[in-house]
Design a protein around this nucleic acid. Structure first.
Lengths: 218, 218
DNA sequence: ATATTTTTTTAGGCGAGTCTAAATTTCTAG
DNA sequence: CTAGAAATTTAGACTCGCCTAAAAAAATAT
């Protein structure tokens, strides 16, 4: 049975505020997070509870059930795949995509998501570096390593950027090194630890100064 | 002021049923088209009329105003751009995309549509051969010509297919000749009027039998 | 030209999701 | 340990978009 837009948003908020299900969420916290009032939250909580999507003890907060968690993860999966699409294919920057993905995540079509996933070449992280749950709703967290510690011949995905200096971000923009992009190390210079890499279908030389601030994953 | 999902759907239905604004739409026709009841239609008609999106004369039907037409065309533009995306980028077939585009057309973000349009290389027709209104809500209808009447060196877009024989559609599928795809005529053989074309980044030879059933536009 | 049928509108009501105000429960300070 | 503060729930109401049933208007058929 398919969930309404509001139900999906509540489920997602509960999942996130509970830190992936590890602690209970209080009514007011949920109200703040969803920009609504406590009374409205109590109403919806009862509905989700009646559907066994969350467990609810009056006055003591809520958390997702296994069923609710799985639904929440599907929505999160869609959100992060769409964000990846927006950045990698439509050239949005990572800070512009959240709002739009909040809408796109509610589109109902399993085949659409399968095909989008394939089109994006099965990404494992979104443009913010957050992991994308797989089709079974499992989050596979791969270790994130600074690029300077990577050996020649390695192929991986840019996950995040350490330095948020605006000149640095502009430089990354220029060479097409966005989080989520595939990257391949062609060669490493022993002398100054600079390296030659392929990003965005282009060969680029980068200094150690740069490579140590780029986090990648297998 | 932004329209609700229901309002957008009513506006679109009125626009289509009125044949692009050229005749009035009756309450029952609208009810049938939207799978709802006449009483519900009358309710919504009053709301849209109060917002000056449609003109309404009791018992005599409705039609879009200039303002309503412009809104309807924006929704239609989004619908057709998304259909084009689904077919050309995600490899859906043209008969699978309507349902999904019905959802996607309501996503609110002018920048998203601009960027999607660019990503698709500013298509003028969707995978069903219907014209895509431009950003100003203007429909530019370009003449559609059978491919066999096209000269060497011509570049254009496949708009539609005349023959709907399943074997023929399979053949087109195989060579990547979907409506919406760019096509270029390399050479024409005077003897049997076969031609060499580039579709989907591949050179293909096609017979006159085939080329006369493919409609293209400049 | 009037009676019957068809279409449209009005009236009243329902569920989803929200709100405010009041009541209840839990927390916390002294 | 108890009174006041804070958090939560309940009660009642609102809008949106839909419904059914009944009333009203328009179309039609004799």
């Amino acid at each position: 049975m398919s969930l309404s837009l509001a139900e999906e948003n509540y489920l997602k908020a509960i999942y996130h505020l509970s830190e992936d299900g590890s602690k209970d969420v209080l009514t007011n916290a949920l109200a703040d997070s969803l920009s609504t009032k406590a009374a409205s939250v109590t109403d919806m909580i009862k509905k989700l509870s009646a559907k066994s999507l969350i467990s609810y003890k009056k006055y003591y907060g809520v958390n997702v059930t296994a069923k609710g968690k799985s639904q929440a993860l599907q929505v999160i999966r869609k959100h992060r795949l769409w964000e990846t699409f927006l950045v990698q294919k439509l050239d949005f920057t990572w800070d512009e995509v959240h709002e739009i993905a909040e809408q796109l995540e509610h589109i109902k079509s399993p085949r659409l998501i399968e095909k989008l996933d394939k089109f994006l070449d099965y990404p494992t992280v979104d443009p913010h570096g957050d992991p994308i749950p797989n089709g079974n709703g499992k989050i596979v967290i791969k270790p994130q390593v600074p690029l300077d510690q990577i050996e020649e011949g390695y192929k991986g995905t840019i996950v995040a950027v350490k330095d948020s200096d605006s000149a640095f971000l502009k430089y990354l923009e220029k060479i097409g090194a966005k989080p989520g992009k595939k990257i391949q190390v062609i060669s490493k210079e022993a002398y100054d630890e600079s390296m030659e890499v392929i990003v965005d279908n282009q060969k680029v030389f980068i200094s150690k100064e740069v490579s140590k601030n780029i986090l990648v994953t297998e």
